[in-house]
Design a protein around this nucleic acid. Sequence first.
DNA 1: AATGAATGAGGGTTCATTCAT
DNA 2: AATGAATGAACCCTCATTCAT
Lengths: 221, 221, 221, 221
Amino acid sequence: MTPEEAVTTRASRRSPRPRADAARNRDRIVAAARDVFVEHGTEAPLDEIAKRAGIGNATLYRHFADRRSLLRAVVLLIMCRVADHAERAAAETVDSLTALRRFVHDAVDERVGAVCGLLIDGGGQDSAEVAVQCRRVEATCETLMDRARHAGQIRADIGLRDLVISMSQLARPLPGIEYRDADAHRHLDLLLDGLRVPAPAACGAPGGAEERSVTYTEHAA
Amino acid sequence: MTPEEAVTTRASRRSPRPRADAARNRDRIVAAARDVFVEHGTEAPLDEIAKRAGIGNATLYRHFADRRSLLRAVVLLIMCRVADHAERAAAETVDSLTALRRFVHDAVDERVGAVCGLLIDGGGQDSAEVAVQCRRVEATCETLMDRARHAGQIRADIGLRDLVISMSQLARPLPGIEYRDADAHRHLDLLLDGLRVPAPAACGAPGGAEERSVTYTEHAA
Amino acid sequence: MTPEEAVTTRASRRSPRPRADAARNRDRIVAAARDVFVEHGTEAPLDEIAKRAGIGNATLYRHFADRRSLLRAVVLLIMCRVADHAERAAAETVDSLTALRRFVHDAVDERVGAVCGLLIDGGGQDSAEVAVQCRRVEATCETLMDRARHAGQIRADIGLRDLVISMSQLARPLPGIEYRDADAHRHLDLLLDGLRVPAPAACGAPGGAEERSVTYTEHAA
Amino acid sequence: MTPEEAVTTRASRRSPRPRADAARNRDRIVAAARDVFVEHGTEAPLDEIAKRAGIGNATLYRHFADRRSLLRAVVLLIMCRVADHAERAAAETVDSLTALRRFVHDAVDERVGAVCGLLIDGGGQDSAEVAVQCRRVEATCETLMDRARHAGQIRADIGLRDLVISMSQLARPLPGIEYRDADAHRHLDLLLDGLRVPAPAACGAPGGAEERSVTYTEHAA
DNA sequence: AATGAATGAGGGTTCATTCAT
DNA sequence: AATGAATGAACCCTCATTCAT
């Protein structure tokens, strides 16, 4: 599903035609914004984005009234793709855990880290379209996790939120450090390994989750 | 080791005495900066920090020439404490994996996520003092990881960098979302579980690291 | 006289025909501009005017090269009508003072306050057409005032400029306050009463013009 | 009463001391703003005001958070002085009509036209301090007008609002035309003459208020 | 001819940093 | 030493005007 389709079916709109060059500009802006947000964070100057997109600053404002609006478009773009990946993974991959794995890595490739936090707890708090995509992701992931849980592949105490937050955090660009996809992929693999059962602790290694959970509780206090 | 000791032994300096109230102000500023950086990111207005510290803005500049300088001091504070925790964990905890676990949770409690990125790749690239602390952390962690590796507790393909980056990322505050220590602790536990051997794959669950590594290679291309 | 006639006789122009719809657009723009200038001042965004006229912004620029040009057209429109009113009042109303009264109220209804200042001192300093209309107004008013003066109806120390400026000012919209024609009409009546002779002072009331003129001189110093 | 006193008695405030140079700057800014507003309208660039005051633009923002805030200060300054003039005129001038006359001319000299509209209908809608000064003006004028009415000096159908609006409008700078105090004073004199009774019409001149009121009603329709 | 889109210049406001008390 | 105040540079956003369909 493309973001355009996500917003509304074109036919139902009044706008006579979204002039080809304008549409191309819009896409360029969103793509540039995504990259700049990844590199410099969501507080990056919009002028930088405009320059990267090869347009004047005012043109950016013609397409997006303010920073939030642009951010929303980026989130929508990413979330549409991520949701697509989730559904495709669920449809095409028989093993649930493998599907989850495929999903998180695809999400990282979609720069999901650029908009971390925005897809949590409903995501686009102020955008119905984004919320729809978030729900697509949630629904698909929940299904996959349920199946994996029932198959005894992943621990029962892991929820959707854990997956989404961890994924977003690990995929986030590190300020001051050049962004490394490789790290995100690698650490997500480690984390996914941690989700699996039998929990490593059950394999005989000393110092299991219980042990930590004690310490953890202390910290939570 | 306190940050003051970390900087230099006082005796070798000219400054006759660092007036008690000035020293107190300095500490207040660093503490306030740490908290503000955690809450609003490292781009937060310095005036906000000064206000939080209960001092005038110019006083902040008397102590720290510019933003970088203040940031360095915060990093140094955190890294000193984190290094202390690392060494204490190594000294007091017999089991290496348990020591690592203790260390990462203590680091989160020290708000290590606030300065993520600054302690990677040598850390304070422009600060010898910070570099010293980073090396303390690195040395201790490397020792612990070596011991754990040799004891067959953690996988052989995991390096120090993996631990430090993951820890920093998972402990980072999520913009727009209220910071939750609990999430960081929880997800670090999951990640640590993923570091352990026998790898979950070896426990019989389908879809091991090898499988992923294939996909991963594709992504890396 | 319509503004079109005022500009030039069509026959002398090259333009083959001013396509009916184009002419209609032009009129709409000028009317919209007049209203917007009244409501939001002469600094109002031109896009607002275009939208109000129901046309695209570029169409506005096809008709009027820049803001000044549009403003001139509005002034011309208003001044043509105001001049018409002046001449009609002079022709149809026997009593000169009554004719003046009729004139000023008609002028207010033509939104003369919207372009205040532009019709003073020659009016459209940069427009021959406007200047022509200004002269029509001036000539007619001068005649009427002369007649009223000679008939002993109005004071001898009142000039055309007094009338025009006062009228413009009192008819001006008050920023932040919803425009009230009623106030303008009311206060113009009061002012016209002040023009009359025998001066109120002569009617026996204390504190006449002479008295004030003293104070006034002080202020002028 | 100075604006400072109008805001609050200094003693009751926490602010340790309003540093002399800062206070001087504040006064300079308000004075510059008043002049610029008179010359170029209340939409004039704030940078222009800062330059005129001989300070940096940011200093202006330190003293006044936004344009409204600055405007309020100007209004307060003017209204305090105007209210002082009103009370002084009432106290020192025996004849009520003469007092009113003195008042309006003093108000013009205080550049009351710069803030026209802001003193109508309660004045500083968002400022209690301004509202207080407006009420001082209103109360004094109402008293003066009452006395003049009872003494048969002015017409009974004239209200406070008529006086205030007319005064503000006539004293307003004409955009594009250099501001002329003389015109304002002159036209206010004429208007005040119009307020007097016996109404000029009663003096025998043809075309009185009744006649107009007919036309007027037509217009109002 | 009409229009949506593009754009550069300019104004409002914030903030890191410097100055004067 | 501590502070309130001052400042210029940078960013966001608007708008008059031009361009391309």
